[in-house]
Amino acid sequence: MAALSRKTLLRAVRSSFGLSKLSAAQDFLGHRRWRSQRPESFTPKDGYYDDECYSALYKTHIPTNPLQKGLLAVGAGVMALWDPYRHGKTPSVVCLIPSFADFTFAPLFTFSDMVAVLGETTGHLALQRIRERMRNDPEGNQILQERPRIRLTTLDLTRLNALPDGTFGKEYVQFLNVHKVTPDSRAEVKFVDDEELAYVIQRYREVHDFVHTLLGMPTNMLGEVAVKWFEAVQTRLPMCILGAALGPLRLSARRLQILTTTLVPWALTNGRNATFMMNVYYERYWEMDMESLREQLGLMPPPTF
């Protein structure tokens, strides 16, 4: 009976989506057996998937089919709205992704990854546009070629903290200290099925705090929504658009008024007029005065509110 039900389901998928072979329907449904435990350090040679068609493109890559991506996007969207703050502030509860081969579930990630998962599963077209803009810009193309990372292992925070007040590097370290955040809080990319696009979205995550610093926005809900409006205009990532549109629903009446009358117009103007954020090699500007850097990038200073 179970076998009959599975075959019926596969035929229905084949018919609905125009898949010519039963094996294609099986692939669409994830009919490739997942191992029950995820390796602690995933690499292609670990054999996490039983079929070569699921080979990993980079160390943290977890290949998924369209249906699984859709389920991840829906679940991640719900959880991101429940707790939209940066990674690491949500409970470390393990989430599951269904394996339709045997109708069981495999552990993949925690709630703290949900915002990241939403960006990865919905942003393919936007990431392609971002990459194209980076390729067509000398500084952006150099970033793609050199692939710098923003981690505690790549930053000399002691040196940056010793820079004069008002410099970009000093302001960035103060931002980290005041808001008690760390560059290492950014999740590694897992669900982007293109190695270069995976770096693009990783870079987007890792420069997010640089954008906060330059825009002068805090990491509370009001500040995050304002930054999302700026990023939505610049990147067109669905995750940013969703955050900009739905984030205000969680604001108080007073903060909503500040957002709509002051911060949104300011963020939209900055997003349209400023240098494309992904084409800025921020690590080269540590010693530059903040006001001069904002002027060079076409950014208006933060409003008073």
Results as ranks from 00 to 15, higher is better:
W34G: 03
P248N: 05
N161V: 07
G247R: 00
A73D: 04
Q234Y: 05
I258Q: 03
T261M: 14
T8I: 11
K45P: 00
N177G: 08
V211R: 04
F109R: 03
C240T: 06
Y54Q: 01
V181K: 02
A76M: 01
L251Q: 00
A116E: 00
Y85I: 08
A12W: 08
K7T: 09
K180L: 09
L96T: 13
V207T: 10
G75L: 07
V78N: 07
N279H: 13
K190V: 00
Q68P: 01
F111D: 00
S92Q: 10
A232N: 00
D27A: 09
Q234I: 05
A12V: 08
S99L: 04
T154C: 06
L237T: 06
L251G: 02
L155Y: 04
P91N: 07
M79N: 04
A253R: 12
E206D: 11
R135D: 15
P107V: 08
P66T: 06
K228G: 08
E295T: 15
H208Q: 10
A106W: 08
F28N: 01
Q234S: 15
Q174A: 11
Q202L: 11
M79W: 03
T262S: 11
Y199N: 08
Q68M: 09
R159P: 04
R236D: 11
F305D: 04
V189I: 14
L251Y: 03
L160H: 13
W266M: 10
T153I: 13
P303L: 11
W82V: 13
T60D: 12
Y48G: 01
S112W: 00
P265D: 05
P238Q: 08
R255F: 11
E132L: 12
S292L: 14
V13N: 01
D83R: 06
F42E: 02
L127N: 01
A56K: 02
R294H: 12
R33C: 04
H87D: 09
A116R: 00
F175E: 14
K89I: 10
E188A: 03
R86Q: 04
G169L: 09
V280H: 07
T219W: 02
T153H: 11
T213E: 06
V78T: 10
L176Q: 12
G243W: 00
L152E: 12
A106Q: 11
A24M: 12
E291P: 11
Q145T: 14
D50W: 07
L96D: 12
P218G: 04
R205L: 04
M114H: 02
